[in-house]
Design a protein around this nucleic acid. Structure first.
Length: 464
RNA sequence: GGCCUGGUAGCCAAGCGGAAAGGCAGCGGUCUGCAAAACCGUUAUUCGCCGGUUCAAAUCCGGCCCAGGCCUCCA
């Protein structure tokens, strides 16, 4: 039984999808005005874990990730560079997709761009106007939150507590109630706008997610995710406009991931303490270690990112891969049935952990325990050829979720194998000079040899 | 000011009422031609602080301190 902490109900709940074995998942994506930083990627890695784990548990996942390609930041960015909005956002979308691949993030089934769904948004706004939830003011259209009685149910915000006027209202548009939010912004000079049935203008921020999620997933769907900072106002507003338009519940489970801190502080440009993925790659860090680091802390806990912890993650990933790469030697002719039992136990705990609101730490500990047990059996000479295979298969199976192993060619070419044999003979003759020579030759080729009491084991290592 | 998280070894991090998981790093040892790996032992008598409830609390309750988030840009 999978359980998730649902922001809507503020407790862990059993996950039951609307349709058996199918999960409709909407994950808030990037605003493509700049490079995403690792704080953003923390959210995307969390969403990737969710996506992959649901598939591992046998669900067919239909996932949407929106791309916000029209808002103040993208418009200003394009303007300042003197290029079209499309040209500007295309560039950052391309980079984003490359970064996703670098972090081994599974591609969502749909990556809809806001600018390609203006019609859907217009239809939705029309419906809100017809039903009286929205109103015009100076050619812009606003959502009237006083018409939606359960406004605040997601964030738990108490509207009477909002300090009206405490902040400088930077919105240049007039609205009836300062707490209302804009659905459609009237066209301004030198800005992008669309000629539509509801007027000349461009969409507000929240409407795209409602329009696109409902287009691809239906009026009610299973899971919606994002960072905690999206709870209010973004997701609160999505609920208000979607449920007002359809009269149906919008989303069953809301999952939000906590923020990433850098050296214990919030990331900010003024402090200069934020990293993009590319910053870290340029410093020589292994992208898989970045993935592992972002993955290995529970998504609802704040994650304090430091280069020290990234180095630790690199070591963990390296050790883990060396264990996996070394699975090519057996210590016994006999099959050891205990290993199969240990694998089953590890698998059970892996699932138990992740079923419980994606408790990754618990799940990972089961894997590391298994590794230790396998090593013990190996050193006791109780690890047969079939055992090698079953351990390897298990590590590969769970890697559909974790994605941290380096899959390399399983076999070595004939000439390499012959060299290893030659070295064995040399060692038996105590010709250590030749033996070390061969080990060095192979090391140059990225093949690392380890002598064990049961023969020589090889590992394909990534040169650093 | 209101609301919400988190504070567990050198670092990261589970556990959330009944003998302190796991990872990284360090130290000592075993094995080894040398490497490397692995294994064993060791590193928190104690879980931010102070009270309370209980036979029993890191876990529940109250107060306090610290860090972070949200309160219409934000993953």
């Amino acid at each position: 039984m999978i359980r998730f902490y649902n922001t809507l109900t503020k407790r862990k709940e059993e996950f039951i999808p609307i349709e058996d074995k199918i999960v409709k998942l909407y994950t808030c994506g990037p605003t493509v005005y700049d490079l995403a930083h690792i704080g953003n990627f923390r959210a995307y890695v969390f969403e990737d874990l969710l996506h992959r784990y649901l598939e591992y548990r046998g669900y067919k996942v239909i996932r949407v990730m929106n791309i916000t390609d029209v808002d103040d930041k993208t418009i200003n960015g394009a303007k300042s560079q003197g290029i079209s909005l499309r040209e500007y956002t295309d560039r950052y979308i391309k980079i984003f997709l490359e970064d996703m691949e670098t972090l081994r993030l599974k591609k969502p089934d749909f990556l809809p761009r806001a600018t390609e769904h203006i019609n859907e948004m217009v239809e939705l706004i029309k419906k809100l106007l017809e039903k009286g939830y929205a109103y015009y003011k100076d050619n812009s259209i606003y959502f009237s939150i006083s018409k939606f009685s359960s406004y605040g149910k997601l964030s738990g915000i108490d509207l009477s507590q909002i300090k009206v006027g405490a902040r400088v209202d930077t919105d240049e548009y007039e609205k009836e109630d300062v707490r209302d939010f804009v659905l459609w912004k009237s066209a301004k000079e030198k800005e992008v706008w669309w000629e539509t049935e509801i007027g000349k203008g461009r969409p507000g921020w929240h409407i795209e997610c409602s329009a696109m999620s409902m287009k691809y997933l239906g009026e009610t769907f299973d899971i919606h995710t994002g960072g905690v900072d999206n709870i209010f106002p973004h997701h609160e507003n999505e609920i208000a406009q979607s449920e007002s338009a359809t009269g149906k519940k919008f989303v069953n489970y809301w999952l939000h991931c906590a923020h990433l801190l850098v050296n214990g502080e919030k990331m900010s440009k003024s402090k200069g303490n934020f990293y993009t993925l590319r910053d870290l790659l340029n410093k020589g860090y292994n992208p898989v270690a970045i993935r592992y680091l972002l993955l290995s802390t529970h998504y609802r806990d704040p994650l304090n990112f430091t280069e020290k912890s990234l180095k630790q993650a690199e070591n963990t990933v390296k050790n883990y891969n060396e264990f996996y790469q070394g699975l090519n030697i057996c210590a016994s002719r006999k099959y050891n049935p205990e290993i199969k039992k240990e694998i089953e136990k590890a698998k059970e705990r892996f699932i138990k952990g992740l079923d419980d609101d994606l408790n990754i730490s618990f799940a990972l500990s089961s894997i590391f325990n298994l590794i230790k047990i396998v090593n013990i059996f190996f050193s006791k000479g109780e690890f047969g050829a079939e055992n090698v295979k079953e351990v390897k298969e298990f590590i590969e199976e769970i890697d559909s979720v974790l994605c941290i192993i380096e899959k390399k060619e399983e076999f070595l070419p004939e000439n390499i194998l012959n060299l290893i044999k030659e070295r064995e003979i040399a060692r038996n003759k105590k010709d250590y000079k030749r033996a070390d020579e061969i080990r060095n030759i192979l090391k140059e080729k990225g093949i690392f040899l380890e002598d064990t009491p049961y023969g020589t084991r090889w590992k394909k290592i990534t040169k650093t």
